[in-house]
Structure formats: C-alpha cells, structure tokens
C-alpha cells in the first residue's frame, strides 16, 4: 500500500513537472551555476553516500551499478 502511494505521488509530481513554464536558453544563467547541480562535488557525494550505505538500513535512489563492499 505504502509503495502504491509512493508510486502515485511520483506520477503526480511528474505531471506537475511537465506542466511548468518553458525557460529559454538565455534565462539559464542561474541554473548553470555549479551549486545548482545535484551533487556538485562528485567525491563528496561518493564519500557521504558510501558512509550512509554502510551505516543505515536504507540506500539507493541516485544511480545504479555502484557495487558492494564488506562494510555493509
């Protein structure tokens, strides 16, 4: 049931996304700032994901094929 709710909210969010304003290339100055990236510091993202992966029950959501380790 919870899974169903999660999938439904993802779909609802997606529809919301598609219905938003069109931003022109010359309006993307702020969007192009390094800090506007999801995970602007690759190695920091890796270290932190690896830490939580090895210390918590939950993981995943950002990428695939990451590989395992004995830490988990």
């Amino acid at each position: 049931m919870k899974r169903l709710i999660a999938v439904a909210s993802a779909l609802a969010f997606s529809v919301l996304l598609i219905g938003c304003e069109t931003v022109q290339p010359w309006q993307k100055g702020n969007l192009a700032k390094p800090d506007m990236a999801f995970g602007p510091d690759p190695l920091q993202t890796r270290f932190e994901e690896h830490t939580y992966f090895s210390k918590e029950g939950a993981s995943g959501g950002m990428n695939v094929g990451g590989g395992g380790c004995g830490c988990n």
């Binding site: 969007l31 192009a32 700032k33 995970g39």
Partner: peptide, 15 residues
Amino acid sequence: LAAALALPGVVPSAQ
C-alpha cells in the same frame, strides 16, 4: 562550466 563540475554518466546533473 556547471556541466563540467557536475556528476555525469550517472544521473543528469544541473539544469
């Protein structure tokens, strides 16, 4: 610049 700093190949990064 942002694309260069982002984490490509995994999930699309900025913008």
